Amino acid sequence: MKVQFISILTALSLSGCIVVSNKPNASSAKAYASNVIDFKPSENAKRIETRGQVICEPSKPCTELTFDWKQQSNNLFRVHTNLFDRKSFDIKQVIFTLDGQTYPYTTLTQTNTRSVNNSDLINSTNYIDVPMNFVVMFDQSKSIDIAVVTDQGAITHSILKDGHASFAYQTFKSGYQQFKQK
């Protein structure tokens, strides 16, 4: 009985030494998040983008937005829309709703699709160009929703809702602040 007790006690103490938490603590997670959305472009940068997901819902394909901070020759900014799902989508239009006001933009090219490595997901992507005044309104909005209109219907998500900012909005704000400082 004494041998069994010592064996169990030894096994428990050794297993406690082996277990290592892989969860980041609050300080490392905060540091990671601040590093991800903070960028300092060099004067030699050819392309600066901020990228992030909207507020996703489990039953819908998740939308990811990329803001390209290189102003186009026509004073427009390029916004890429990516959908990740098991099926492909033909993205035809992107409609933003900023504080209740809608801003529809038709995509400029055919949708590109590609398989995502090591998964069964397909990335469907297309882009729109938006004017500077839209970027300013996007920055100042209190509520932002997006509808990605596809060949299979509209996929709607929130970007900024009830004070909850998506990662797409957080990265946009960081990029916009850097753009204004130029």
Score class of each variant (00 low, 15 high):
Lys23Ile: 11
Lys23Phe: 06
Ile95Cys: 07
Gln110Leu: 12
Gly175Phe: 00
Arg51Thr: 14
Ile95Ala: 09
Thr81His: 01
Asn22Phe: 15
Tyr169Gln: 01
Ser15Cys: 15
Val36Pro: 04
Asp162Ile: 02
Thr81Met: 05
Ser73Gly: 07
Gln72Glu: 12
Val149Ala: 06
Lys70Ser: 14
His80Glu: 11
Lys92Ser: 08
Ala147Arg: 10
Tyr169Gly: 00
Val136Ile: 10
Lys40Asp: 13
Pro24His: 03
Gln110Lys: 15
Phe167Glu: 10
Glu43Leu: 12
Phe172Glu: 00
Ala165Met: 05
Thr97Leu: 04
Ile155Met: 00
Thr81Arg: 02
Thr125His: 07
Asp85Asn: 04
Met132Leu: 15
Asp162Phe: 02
Arg47Ile: 07
Asn82Leu: 06
Val36Gln: 08
Met132Tyr: 15
Lys182Thr: 09
Lys70Tyr: 03
Ser143Glu: 05
Thr66Ser: 08
Asp68Ala: 09
Phe167Ile: 07
Ala31Asn: 15
Cys17Gly: 15
Ser28Gln: 11
Val54Glu: 06
Arg47His: 06
Lys182Phe: 14
Glu57Gly: 11
Ile155Cys: 01
Gln53His: 12
Leu83Asp: 01
Pro131Asn: 06
Ala165Lys: 09
Ala33Met: 07
Phe172Cys: 01
Leu160Met: 02
Met132Gln: 14
Gln101Tyr: 09
Ala29Leu: 11
Gln140Ser: 14
Asp120Ile: 11
Cys17Asn: 10
Ser28Phe: 10
Arg47Trp: 05
Leu108Asn: 14
Val36Met: 11
Tyr103Cys: 03
Gly100Ala: 11
Asn133Ser: 12
Thr106Val: 13
